[in-house]
Design a protein around this nucleic acid. Structure first.
Length: 322
DNA sequence: GCCCGTCAAGGAGTA
DNA sequence: TACTCCTTGACGGGC
């Protein structure tokens, strides 16, 4: 029997004034004449974001949600080249420690999804270096939180550059330039335009990286439509991970706008997945990527409860009974 | 207080 | 080659 644990992304539609991603753009930063004052403002924003992350975790705990993606925008402008030399951690160490301790003591799984500007297979050295900087930022946040950085950042393989095969090989070449500590962070996800599950498996199996299977992306972009033919291989990419297999669940907004995320998740689609993989592995952590964030999770749970084969193990985890 | 343009990034897609 | 769009939540100017 497989335990399916549900989680959601970055922010809650239920908590008021709890944004974990307040920001200041570089344009605004530049307009503040006193640079020290501007940096102090950035630090106050970062502290507020971390404080709101903690509020979110407490909200999650109240609903048995132990799986959560943190916003990558906790510290605004942390990786901006004009702020090189700014020790952005110094003012937030205690806040990060408190956040990490809360997560650890409540046995919560936290991770990140840096945005699509992390491009490891870029032929442009400057873009590769910026990508490293962004990953290092995530590494340092986790380190300060006291969380083992192993398999905590998921992102895509990168650009196609008019030649997918060459670009896949360039990912492998560039991987050797990634510091070992940063390599440990990485999980790879199939995307909806360029790299399919098959492409990702090629890389993940070669470089020993866990594959985060995104069902919605697979439906939009695949080599073989039936994802189940890949399932054994997907599971195997997780065999050396200290964490349970993770995947992404979302539904298309509409037939016309297929790639966009809908407000909620189609329970039938999810149930079909559950039925197919049940028993294949001990636990699967399913990240709900829907516009209505935690409300989408709550609604999915309500829909699942109706099903005769579903057993609610907690308020946000289920098993399937034949 | 609401509306909507702007911000920030790299790549894909289109003309 | 040059442009728009994609994505995201928040900012901030205009009314």
């Amino acid at each position: 029997m497989t335990l399916f644990r549900l989680g959601y992304v970055a922010m809650s539609v239920n908590l008021q004034n709890a944004s974990p991603s307040q920001t200041m753009t570089y344009k605004t930063f530049k307009q503040i004449r006193d640079r020290d004052a501007a940096i102090r403002k950035l630090e106050r924003i970062a502290q507020s974001n971390i404080h709101n992350c903690l509020r979110l975790l407490k909200h999650n705990k109240a609903h048995d949600m132990n799986f959560f993606r943190l916003s990558s925008r906790i510290v605004p402008l942390a990786t901006h080249e004009e702020l090189n030399g700014w020790d952005y951690l110094s003012g937030i160490k205690d806040d990060l420690k408190e956040l990490g301790s809360y997560a650890e003591s409540n046995n919560m799984r936290l991770d990140f999804h840096p945005d699509h500007f992390v491009v490891l297979n870029s032929p442009d050295e400057a873009i590769f270096k910026t990508s490293m900087k962004v990953l290092k930022y995530h590494y340092l946040l986790l380190h300060q939180m006291g969380i083992d950085p192993m398999h905590r950042c998921v992102f895509h393989l990168g650009g196609r550059y008019d030649d997918k095969e060459k670009s896949l090989e360039r990912f492998i070449e560039n991987w050797s330039l990634v510091p070992k500590g940063i390599q440990k962070l990485v999980m790879i996800e199939n995307d909806d335009t360029s790299y399919t599950v098959e492409n990702c498996l090629y890389i993940c199996e070669k470089l020993n990286i866990p594959l985060v299977f995104d069902l919605h992306h697979h439906l939009a972009n695949h080599d073989v439509g039936d994802w189940h033919v890949y399932w054994e291989r997907i599971m195997n990419t997780w065999s050396h991970s200290p964490l349970p297999l993770k995947m992404h669940i979302s539904s298309p907004k509409s037939r016309e706008d297929f790639k966009s995320h809908a407000d909620f998740v189609d329970a039938e689609m999810f149930l079909d997945f559950v039925k197919k993989v049940n028993g294949s592995i001990e636990q699967i952590d399913c990240m709900i990527e829907a516009k209505q964030k935690d409300d989408a999770l709550f609604r999915l749970v309500e829909d699942l409860k109706e099903h005769p084969n579903i057993i609610m193990e907690t308020e946000s985890s289920i098993t399937w009974k034949d």
